[in-house]
Nucleic acid binder design. Sequence first.
DNA 1: AAAGCTCGCGCC
DNA 2: AAAAGGCGCGAGCTTT
Length: 590
Amino acid sequence: MPTTDTLPSHPAPPRWWLIGVSAGESAADGACLAVPIPAVGSVGTPVPLTQAQLPRFVAEQEAQGAVRWVWSDTPHWARLLIDAGIRVARCHDLRLCHAILASSEHVTDPAPLRAAAEWAVGPALPVPEVAPEATLFDLGLAAAQPDSVPHTASAALAEFARQRTASEGNPGLQILLAAESAGALIAAEMSAAGLPWDAIEHDRILAAELGPRPAPGAKPARMIALGEQVRAALGDPQASLDSPPKLVRSLRSAGIGVASTSKWELMEHEHPAIAPLLSYKKLARLLSANGWVWLDEWVRDGRYRPVYVPGGVVTGRWASSGGGALQLPRQLRPALRADPGWRLVSADVAQLEPRVLAATAGDHALAAAARGTDLYSGIVASGAVTTREEAKFAMLGAMYGATTGEAGRLAPRLRRSYQAAMGMLDRAAATGERGGQVSTRLGRTSPLPSPEWRAEQAQASLPGASTADEARARRASREYGRFTRNFVVQGTAAEWALAWLGGLRARLAALPEIGPAELASGASGRTFARRAHLVFFLHDEVIVHAPETLAEDVAAAITAAAADAGQLLFPGAPIDFPLDLRIAERSDAK
DNA sequence: AAAGCTCGCGCC
DNA sequence: AAAAGGCGCGAGCTTT
């Protein structure tokens, strides 16, 4: 396998340029300003540009060496560049970075950032501090969020200055801001490129499960047949299977004592109606979530284009909006298919979160268990538990705060073997139970609990509090502790994944473009038709669409980027992040 | 009619 | 199989 061990390092520190809308009186529609920022606190002479001139200007600057583009909102600005075929190496997304800094407990004076509430737009809103003297009027103002951040150059310059001050002297935060911004670029590029999708294979999978595509509004044949079986077994020809409340009533009249229609509960009962009902529910889910309607709406010209929302989850994970990109059922994986002459290079990290836990906590015993490729087998080998399944369940339970059941029973054994890791989790939980904040490795900070949560805790500690008040408050307290316990692991894992993605993007950019002869027929108009590019990212998994001739190089780049990410977050730590790598025409269902 | 809710289940 | 963290989405149903 060819190696890509070293990246061309930046010959000079990146230059900073800010791009914004020109707000001058004489500014025509679409007039922009590019403002050089030669040093902290200084601003060079702005360059006026039309929107049409912008891509070329950006490309010229990129050609002269590393630039970091500062802008209000990546989807807004990157789209112009991507459509013009221009790739930027780095950016600084003011909206996303504002969200991180305004709520970070590592920023000494967040007040100027919090006062600039016009930048607090989007899903990763910091929970506003509610001062005791705040009036309802103040709260109303704080709650009224604008639809988008300001795009003017002057507003962006002011916000950038606040952010520089806030992150000064904190290299962790600076890495996080860079990684978050790289993620925003990648999300925009992945939406533009699309995930190569074989609609015919998708239809084949649907037809095999559901029967041929029915007329609009009609139920597929297999669902009709299963529905009849269920109704016959229940002895209730009118039973509705699509409304949980009605279905519960039908099941109870047939003597099946369920309180809900969840499959876990259904599976506990022996009745001839159960098996066909579970099959029916599975098919109904497939049809409504990823059926023919989804295919028509989301797949065009052989590409599925989901909308990713970087920073959409408080822990730093991405969310998605529309198309359900983060919930694609494994069943449909075979519909992911490379273009002719291309390959899908897929990689996922084996047990990312426990590895991150071992590295963050500096737990040598857990790091030793992770030494091989399978951390859970390593835990078994250490003698803490007896089977791999037990190890997995106990570890997930420890990170999620399980107290009962099998995971709760196994917890003490992990606690003995991995004191540092479990101690870190317990401290994070204790902080959350008190209503405090915790932070990830690089400094993303958990939100404060809501004012209602605080009121509930305060109520329970009053002299006249009822036992019910106390029990409710304790439950809410434990719940928040489970959240902060998980936050430190999930959030740091999300940072590792962002660093991996960002590093991979840089390495892919260093790979050659393919020549016109290798272009797939009909592909010349596509974005990224000539180079290996990211097409999918899901928490601990990436898929790169690559020309066949470059597939091995891409695999090496993915591996090297994973090693880089580990060193960036945990320099010198004795932990690695092994990958499951596959090069194939189709993504397999695993 | 639209908006908002819960349920259930897909992903990690 | 186990029930513990983070999500998005569609369907049904209730409220406005």
